[in-house]
Nucleic acid binder design. Structure first.
Length: 310
DNA sequence: GCGATCCCCAGTTCGATACG
DNA sequence: CGTATCGAACTGGGGATCGC
């Protein structure tokens, strides 16, 4: 990150140094190069988060919501649906965007072609699928594999690289999500139920949804965290992560161990690491998603900034 | 060149075992 | 009994490597 955001990087770097001196010694960023690289990763993560938050209010072309359009974008489509009060569609689009993900080269093509059903029929909108799961299943069995077999690359994102486009898995994953929501009748009814159960605090809501997402197949710690933080950023659900969910993590846990103890393999209690992140964020005020994202990317190359792609 | 094979990954699932 | 914890088994697809 050359030149740009110099002030913000400097400010974060100084906060890290002060925190180390006065609150808890952060062994992983004791060196100048490491502290600088970490500060740059934090600013880089903040910018990615801010980009998505801005989608909620910025001007968007209506074709962003049209899967037949070249400029279809499921996150922008979710933002547009939210503005129209169509929370069901906003959640569903966010779910599909998270499940398929944006591939570094193929972009949103996999999401677009599933959601738009390759133009073979009306789009698989929430209104359509939630009332016609059987139609979705037969379409996946009978048409989807042939439609995919056209020589065009439609890959999952890095975070979803173990997923499969097989009809069996598609039915299992999408079906389990549809079932999960259908128990409540609508996404808004689910949110109301969460509020009844744990109150209205965004951290409590996030945590309760995180637990309940176990009902959705193939959505583990990473997929669930990506999905729920997306809902929060786009203003689709009033939730925000109150922790980095290190207990179930691999990369972010490694990153936090390196950050705090100077050793990615350190035998550290995730709960204690979370408490240190809590205290640090009281000063940084960047949010837990930025911390977990930045520390995961930083630990790959701790002594110099490498932009995360993928 | 080109297909076959291998390896990796910020993963997931399943079943066994240990608890209260 | 339920349920928490743990590790082994297994995952799909891309890209690198290998053998021809």
């Amino acid at each position: 990150m050359p030149g740009l955001h110099r002030d913000k990087i400097d400010q974060i770097r100084d906060t890290l140094a002060n925190f180390s001196a006065n609150v808890f010694p952060l062994a992983g960023v004791a060196g100048d190069a490491e502290r600088q690289a970490c500060a740059e990763q934090l600013v880089s993560s903040m910018r990615r988060v801010d980009y998505v938050k801005d989608l909620a209010t910025k001007a968007l072309h209506p074709n962003r919501a049209d899967p037949a359009s070249e400029i279809f974008d499921p996150l922008m489509a979710a933002a547009l649906a939210t503005r129209q009060g169509n929370y069901d569609e906003a959640w569903w689009l966010s779910f599909l965007a998270t499940h398929f993900g944006k591939h570094i080269n193929d972009g949103w093509r996999l999401t677009k072609d599933f959601y738009g059903a390759f133009g073979t029929r009306a789009a698989w909108s929430w209104a359509t699928i939630s009332n016609n799961v059987a139609d979705l299943h037969s379409w996946l069995d009978q048409q989807w594999p042939d439609l995919l077999n056209d020589g065009v690359s439609r890959r999952f994102s890095n975070h979803r690289k173990y997923e499969s486009k097989s009809p069996a898995q598609m039915k299992a994953v999408l079906g389990s999500y549809i079932d999960f929501i259908s128990t409540f009748g609508s996404h808004q009814a689910l949110v109301q139920d969460i509020h009844r159960a744990v109150g209205q605090h965004p951290h409590a809501g996030f945590d309760e949804l995180y637990k309940r997402m176990r009902a959705v197949k193939r959505f583990g710690r990473l997929g669930t965290f990506d999905f729920l933080t997306m809902l929060g950023k786009l203003g689709i659900a009033p939730i925000e992560p109150g922790s980095a969910y290190l207990a179930d993590a691999t990369g972010p846990l490694r990153g936090t161990k390196l950050f705090v103890h100077g050793d990615p393999e350190a035998d550290a209690d995730p709960t204690e690491l979370e408490e240190i992140l809590d205290q640090l964020d009281a000063q940084l005020q960047v949010g837990k998603q930025v911390l977990e994202d930045a520390l995961c990317n930083w630990q790959k190359t701790p002594d110099r900034f490498v932009l995360f792609r993928g």
